[in-house]
Amino acid sequence: MKFLNVLNKKFFVASSFFLAIPFSLTSFAASNKKPKICLVLDKGGKDDKSFNQSAFEGFTKAINNKKLNISPDSKYVTVREDTQSQQFIRSFSSGDCALVIAVGFNNADTVGKLAKNFPKQKYVLVDSLINEPNVRSISFQEHEGSFIVGYIAAMKTKTKQVSFIGGMEIPLIKRFAMGFEAGVKKYNSEIKITETYVGVTSSAWNNPSKAKEIALSKYNQGNDVIFVAAGGSSQGVFDAVAEVNKNKKSSTKFIIGVDSNQNHIAPGLVLTSMEKKVDDKVYKSIEDFVENKFTTGVIKYGFADSGIDWSHDKHNEKLYTDKELKEIERIKNEIIENKIKVPDYYTVGKKN
């Protein structure tokens, strides 16, 4: 893929080198004015088996779709340090990127500021809310998905103890936690829930050893299901669930993944994943832009819009009975029909 080769030569450079030598963003004319799409990933990167990887897959799918006629010089970069967010997005905004896509709340402030400075530039911001006339903000109803996986956790726990592990205690992750707790309590109000966070700085999203330490402690204290929403740190929890189930004839401890379908990471040990359809929505945004159907504003995707779901596939299908599947589907439909009001930290939590 040409766009990746270009990237490797020009973008994965040290920060000091980035400051000294600006990126080359002058290939728009040479590509017969095919739109160049530029993607900025958050720290997890394209191989995080989660949110960033899903966004990258949607981006790649669009680039490879010849019908969309996108420039092969389209690029992606990964923010490794906080200061790079503004550097990358500003460079893309002042260059020849027709559409700039920024992933993750860590890039939200930068997009908000630069959207004002570059009013003609079109942006897509994934997983944050910004109201600017040139920005499409894509958000997901995480509380709805978290409610379902909380219900599943309660359905499957044997010890009546479950846990939530988040990256940082910020509103977005508290939204997951609140939805998860509500789902657990919907099934059985007597189940004990603990809530723990990996850290208090952005490094919390890339500290799998700390997350593993927390998860092992939770499992050893009797929790038999852990829902994790901690970016790159989540891998530590997957390592922990594999360790505690090692050499056992049947699984007794489980994990619930997040953002993308992570069932395949530890087949039989992942109850499900709270899946955001990031790949679909990134692809759709690019398609809309190319086909002159692009609109700006805030778009919220939930169950009703096929923006989120719980993952059920060959890797976890043996964990459920037909009766349980029907019950889960019933709860999901009641959320869609507003028969179940899922508490949202963005509205409920901030009042407390």
Results as ranks from 00 to 15, higher is better:
V126G: 00
Q53D: 04
N263H: 05
I336D: 12
D344Y: 13
R136D: 01
T194R: 09
R136C: 01
F289V: 08
K66M: 05
V258A: 08
K248G: 03
K210P: 04
N245T: 04
K218M: 08
E142C: 02
D127F: 01
I193N: 04
K318H: 15
V103L: 11
T110R: 03
E287Q: 13
G236E: 08
K281V: 11
F28I: 13
S137D: 00
A182E: 06
G231N: 07
T83M: 14
V40E: 00
F164M: 02
P22T: 10
K61H: 06
A211Q: 03
N223D: 08
Y197T: 03
I331S: 09
V278S: 03
N32F: 07
V111I: 09
A211D: 06
A62D: 05
A108M: 10
S93Q: 05
T60I: 09
Q262R: 04
T60N: 11
V348H: 09
T252V: 11
F303M: 07
V342M: 10
A229M: 02
Y283H: 08
I331V: 15
A20T: 14
F147I: 04
I299N: 13
N223W: 05
V290W: 04
S128A: 09
K293D: 11
K350L: 11
G183N: 03
V124T: 02
V228Y: 02
G302I: 05
T159H: 02
Q86P: 11
S260N: 08
K66S: 09
A229C: 05
V228F: 04
N131L: 06
V135D: 00
K160A: 05
H264L: 12
S250A: 12
N247V: 10
D48N: 00
Q161K: 13
D96E: 15
K332H: 15
T157C: 02
Q87I: 13
L125T: 00
S146Y: 03
N352Y: 14
Y197E: 04
M168T: 10
S91D: 12
S250D: 09
K276W: 05
Q53S: 04
E195R: 13
I265F: 05
N247D: 14
K46R: 11
N223Y: 07
G199W: 10
I299G: 08
H312M: 15
T201V: 12
L68K: 02
S273E: 01
M1S: 15
F289I: 06
S93W: 02
P119W: 06
D127T: 01
L319D: 13
Y301S: 09
L41F: 04
K34A: 05
A115Y: 01
E337R: 15
S202Q: 15
I63N: 01
S137T: 01
D47A: 06
V124C: 01
G183H: 03
A242P: 07
E334P: 12
N32W: 06
I191M: 07
N117V: 10
S16P: 11
T272Q: 03
V13Q: 14
K46S: 07
A102Q: 08
W205K: 08
D48W: 00
V126N: 00
M1F: 15
P35F: 02
V149L: 03
N188F: 10
S24K: 14
Y345T: 09
